[in-house]
Simulated assay, not measured.
Amino acid sequence: MPINKNALIRYKTIDQCLQNRSRKWTLEDLIDACRKALYEYEGIEKGVSRRTVQADIQLMRSDKLGYNAPIKVVDKKYYTYEEPKYSITNIPLTTQDLEKLNEVSEILKQFKGFSHFGDLRVMVQKLEDKISATRNNLRPVIDIEKNDNLKGLEYIEIIFQAIRRKEVLEIWYQSFKAKRPGKILFHPYLLKEYRNRWFVIGSKGEGHNFELEREILGFGEGMKVLSPDKLKKRIARNLRNASHNYDGL
């Protein structure tokens, strides 16, 4: 059963209230707590109805969401958990939950080369520990192509940050026909992964995608560029220049 964000906020709020046994909770108290939580997290000012919170409590008591919360009413007025240590956050993971968590873990592990992964690594390890402790023989069903030995991965983060900050990069670039590399000012605006290789698209006066052009030239006569015209003309020019290396044969 799908849960929307507002409903999840209400469930967690009710759960936190009922865990707090230092005070007694009436239905009006729970409604007020949900109203404050929705305003704090979502900026919703219209509040929440009595009927909605009553329906939330009934749903939490049922097994539709897997909660089966032992909510009872004391003195026909106060709501509390019959089991003092109960919380909806402590319910066991279902098989479907474990499968989805495993898929997420496998995807997150692919993002190496970014500084963000330093934070993700801890989260992934915790996720894997949880999965392993619950289900030790879970077979991965996602295999993402990757090449950890690819040269230049250490520059991905630098380029990524330059794109975000709209910074110009000073790089050394050597074309096929050049005898030595030359320094250029490069304006990057897109990082793209294609066929297990990383490309940076940007400009130095006009748009250039150096790696993509190399990929196209690598196909030789087996590849024809139809558009855009600028790329088509550059590839044609590069091929003509390359053919001069074989003059006299």
Rank of each mutant, 00 (worst) to 15 (best):
Y86Q: 05
N196P: 02
I216A: 00
K230W: 13
P92E: 01
G66L: 10
R195S: 13
K230G: 15
L120E: 08
I44P: 00
F160E: 03
S227E: 10
G152R: 01
E106P: 01
V124D: 01
D15Y: 00
L59K: 12
N149R: 12
A33C: 09
H116S: 15
K179H: 12
S49H: 08
E213K: 07
D75V: 09
S87T: 10
R197H: 06
S62V: 03
Q58E: 15
L8A: 13
A37Q: 01
V104K: 01
R61C: 08
E193I: 04
G66M: 06
K64C: 11
A33Q: 08
Y67W: 05
Y189V: 14
G47N: 05
L191Q: 02
G202C: 04
L226G: 11
Q174R: 14
D97K: 02
L98A: 07
R165K: 12
Y78A: 06
I163M: 02
D32A: 11
K36V: 05
I31H: 00
R10Q: 04
N102A: 08
I216C: 04
Y79R: 11
L153F: 07
L239R: 15
L191R: 05
T80A: 07
H116V: 13
S132Y: 11
Q110L: 06
K126H: 13
I158K: 15
R21W: 03
L150D: 13
A33N: 02
V122T: 13
A33G: 04
Q58M: 11
I107W: 03
E154H: 07
L108A: 05
K183C: 12
C34S: 07
K177W: 08
C17N: 02
M60C: 02
Q16L: 14
S49V: 04
F114Y: 11
G202F: 00
S49R: 09
S87H: 02
K77D: 07
V74K: 14
A33L: 04
E99K: 09
E45A: 13
L8D: 11
D63G: 08
K204G: 11
K36L: 09
I184A: 05
K76M: 11
K224C: 11
T80E: 14
W172F: 14
Q54M: 12
K12L: 15
E28Q: 13
V122R: 12
A162S: 12
K85C: 10
I235M: 09
C17Q: 01
T26V: 06
R10W: 00
Q161H: 12
N6V: 07
I57K: 01
S132L: 10
M60V: 03
G152A: 04
A55S: 15
K36D: 08
P70N: 06
I3R: 14
K233V: 14
D143S: 14
G118M: 06
I14N: 00
E145Y: 08
T80P: 02
L8W: 10
G43E: 06
S62C: 08
E99Y: 08
Y194H: 14
I44E: 00
M60Q: 02
K77W: 01
K230T: 14
K76I: 10
D148M: 11
A133S: 14
R165S: 15
I14F: 00
L239Q: 15
S115C: 09
N137H: 13
L98V: 08
G248L: 05
L18R: 00
L127C: 02
I107F: 03
L38A: 01
K224F: 10
Y194G: 02
I156D: 01
L59P: 04
L38N: 00
A178C: 08
K112W: 10
L98E: 07
I216K: 00
T13L: 00
Y39A: 06
R50N: 12
